[in-house]
Amino acid sequence: MIETRGLRKSYRSREGRETKTVDAVRGVNLDVAEGEIFGFLGPNGAGKTTTLRMLATLIEPDGGEATVAGADLRKDPAEVRRRIGYVAQGGSTWDESSAREELVLQARLYGISKAEAHRRAERALEAFQLTEYADRKCKTYSGGQRRRVEIALGIIHEPKIVFLDEPTTGLDPQSRAHMWDEIRRLRTEGMTVFITTHYLDEADALCDRIAIMDHGEIVAEGTPAELKREISGEVVIVGLDAPSTPRAAELLDTEAYVSKLETVDEGGLRLYVDEGATAIPQVLRRLDHAGLDLRSIELHRPSLDDVFLTKTGRSLRES
């Protein structure tokens, strides 16, 4: 659905007398499959919005190629526009218009007839639970209501792909969960959804596949599970009292599924394993046979933040 090769963009900005060049996006290669929710995860200033704006034909890339929904981004941007929807990070509704007016106009700008535009607006209002406020001015909406209108605007023409730039930023947990449901519904309708986010849990729970972006480059790509597995495997933390720790370490060190073993100072072990789910029963059996009492056993799965940490040397939570 989307294929990019070496997409680049730099900005020149003036600071006093000097002109500075910011390489916002430096050589992005992406492959997004049809019907998936693809997530772009990265800290502020990573270049997510810039990439999206290039793919949505709003800014011209300095270099590279891209095919979006089967149309060539450089040669046929008009065709790209017909096939995509785009919801900007910063909002796109006019204070003095109502949701219904905005939806009808947006549909008509895509060449849809008046009657059909009204039908679609009605359907979209229902789907996004906006019927109640449909005819009020946008400036009277809450942040979450307004965000829902904007997303409805982005898909009113039933595009093949919709780009959502931080669709859930600024929403409360409940509205976020609700928005996730909406986005999943778009996928079941066959749309390809491309979202950006800097929420780890959102990338993890919502996206089929993600690309982690930092300083204008993609540092990792895959399903959340793949990325996490690739990183460090999983860690089983075995709680033991200090006296029995050396004996347990001796026993478990020789086991094939343990790739690395560390002793915890005040008693206990950290076992690096490929898959905790199969390792834990074996650990339990081994220790039980040897008559060693264990106090606790925990499984630590690597998070996307661990992935980010290994790839960039920084934690996304801190940056």
Binding site: T57, L58, R81, I84, G85, A88, G91, S92, L109, Y110
Partner: peptide, 16 residues
């Protein structure tokens, strides 16, 4: 004002 509200950008991604 329209530029700031994002209305122009919204129009520019449509085929209008």
């Amino acid at each position: 004002a329209e530029l700031r509200a994002g209305v122009i950008e919204r129009s520019r991604v449509t085929p209008v």
